[in-house]
């Protein structure tokens, strides 16, 4: 056991990551923050639309899109990957719709069939053309966010001062940063449309908002976010980032702007804490970030002042022991 879980050491696991390996750890945490923020914000709307599992589906099914883009363009270019992921995302959405509408298979089964088939095709492509596609099977599942620091110049601070921040950091991080920025902008600009069409499609139509268009636009943007995050956190952990920060925020507030802000906060906390956890246990960085996000969710679930388990428990005890004043009045 002791070789599996090393003893916790404050100096080594909390202070050292920010002193010795500052550049790499900072970038990993930054990347995690970008991924969790972009995914979390899109995830907020997915959850309100009860489409969390469509997010699950799309995060798996962008894989064949990425693989084909790799094979076709023979590079790790941004645009081929975006286009591949977009097409894969739209194909998934349509496939689910077709299976569900044209046969008696229910929607949940349709989701399950569509994304597993596409994901299987993706995995087969990357294992058959392993020499041409720069992705491996494990990376597909839980990403390689830890490798971000590998190509950094040894003296990070000096390099930043010499060339500027955006020149030094890897292209994956700057791309994810731009996608996150764009997500924040889009959510701010189209807040009303997203909000209304998520809660009340009928009202949205009467206000002149095309709900179908919003739906497909959301799916397209989801594909873009997922594909930018894919290489760092992999298919399954993208799902985690889509759902966990948002779910934690949902436990703590019922106002959408507050939920958005909390989502960003949870994203930041879980990525920083994840770096520490991964340093301590020497495990997958992305996995550790999601574990920390799960821990934050559990804390919110138990201690939420709105309707956390603890509050519910106390409230239940109260109603059992002493009936409220109105009831006392009414029974007199």
């Amino acid at each position: 056991m002791s070789e599996l879980i090393p003893p916790f050491d404050w100096q080594q696991h909390v202070i050292a990551p920010w002193v010795d390996g500052f550049g790499a750890n900072f970038l990993i945490a930054l990347m995690g923050f970008f991924v969790a923020t972009a995914c979390g914000l899109v995830g907020n709307y997915l959850m309100m639309r009860r489409m969390a599992l469509v997010g699950d589906a799309i995060s798996h099914s962008v894989l064949p899109g990425i693989a084909v883009a790799f094979l076709w363009s023979k590079s790790r270019g941004t645009w081929p990957m975006f286009i591949g992921a977009l097409i894969a995302g739209i194909v998934t959405t349509i496939l689910i719709e077709v299976i569900h509408k044209k046969s008696r298979v229910k929607q949940d089964a349709a989701i399950g069939i569509a994304f597993t088939s596409l994901f299987a095709i993706g995995v087969i492509l990357i294992s058959v053309f392993a020499s041409q596609i720069d992705l491996d099977q494990e990376c597909v599942l839980y990403g390689e966010i830890g490798y971000i620091g590998a190509e950094l110049p040894p003296d990070f601070k000096a390099a930043v001062q010499a060339d500027g921040f955006w020149q030094v950091i890897p292209v994956d991080v700057s791309r994810m940063g731009l996608v996150t920025l764009a997500t924040v902008l889009l959510v701010t600009l189209f807040y009303k449309q997203l909000l209304v069409s998520s809660f009340d499609a009928g009202l949205a139509t009467s206000l002149g908002i095309n709900s179908t268009f919003v739906h497909y636009a959301l799916m397209c943007w989801l594909s873009i976010v997922v594909v930018s995050a894919f290489e760092s956190v992999g298919a399954v952990l993208v799902v985690a980032m889509l759902i966990l920060p948002g779910a934690t925020a949902f436990m703590l507030s019922h106002r959408l702007p507050v939920i958005h802000a909390l989502t960003v906060l949870v994203a930041a906390l879980s990525s920083v804490l994840g770096v520490h956890l991964a340093t301590w246990l020497d495990c997958s960085m992305a996995g550790a970030m999601v574990v920390m996000a799960s821990v934050l969710f559990t804390l919110a679930w138990v201690f939420s002042p709105l309707d956390g388990l603890l509050v519910r428990f106390i409230r239940q005890r109260k109603t059992h022991l002493e009936p409220s004043e109105e009831i006392v009045e009414a029974t007199k």
């Binding site: 009860r50 889509l242 495990c283």
Partner: peptide
């Protein structure tokens, strides 16, 4: 039962949380 989260969110949440713990353990092993 105890939160306002819908079933799909609950499923995705458990899937992701358990899987990430599993991934951490596998990479440790």
């Amino acid at each position: 039962h105890t939160t306002k989260l819908k079933e799909d969110a609950a499923l995705g949440l458990v899937l992701a949380a358990f899987f990430s713990i599993g991934i951490c353990m596998v990479t440790m092993i």
